[in-house]
Amino acid sequence: MITFEHVTKRYGERLALDSVSWHMDEGECVVFLGHSGAGKTTLLRLVTHETHPTAGTVTVGTFRGPRLARAKRALLRRTLGIIYEDFRLLNDRTVFENVALAVRITGRFVDAEVVPRVLYALEEAGLQQKQGAFPSELSAGERQRAAIARAIVNRPAVILADEPTGALERHSAGEVVALLKRIHAEGAALLLVTTRPGVAEAMGGRILRLDDGRLAGEGAPPATAAATTATVTAAARATLAQAPPSAGAASTTVAEPPGGASAMPPPGPAGPAPGAAPGGAP
């Protein structure tokens, strides 16, 4: 699905990635954990072909090569769902229009086909009540869920998430992690990068540690093992209880590093089976 073979990336004199090799399969969940500047975002930018490797080869599905033509690059990005730390929503459009844009970009659907797809994604993200709201009218957590709805609306094979909880407070972060786990449980591969060991562990996938552009090992850092396993806050429990009735049983236990007073939400409600029709979607 995604393979890096001895990939090196330099920005001028600065070495962002140093001969990194790794692979992820279809439906797998891989989390890159590392401090700020470790090369996590560069790694995602290489996957999306926003930048090109200085050396080595990046393969994403059938797309392979150092520099894709613009049309092929667009095609590659349509096979991915991308979630950013800063949401990257269009502020002059409603939540519905933001999500619909991703469908229209594929060029495969007429207007009448766009609506049910968007409503389905919004329902999965628990935002059907907010479809007419503008991003400025949403909380940070809701904005990130809108971005997730946009990422999943075309049912991509891989979801890329660049520090998806970075701009969120504890409660919203828990909601987002639960939602991502549910999407992964439905069959999508998930590639997530984060600085937070708690989030990495909560995702329940394979953890690869990045340190100054090099792969430093697999699994959570030792410090995290001793971390306090967070308990679910009442607020997170209440919010998750409002999720669609078909929501899955993905477990969301987030461990925080020592000294962290945060508590992430635990198991979210059961998610829908892959391909299941959402209740109430037109």
């Binding site: 667009a74 590659l76 991915l80 991308i82 929503l89 060029g107």
Partner: peptide, 16 residues
């Protein structure tokens, strides 16, 4: 610019 960048990252072609 912001909108164009987002659309490009979502996979929009230049024509779109």
């Amino acid at each position: 610019r912001h909108q164009v960048e987002i659309m490009s990252r979502l996979g929009a072609t230049d024509r779109f």
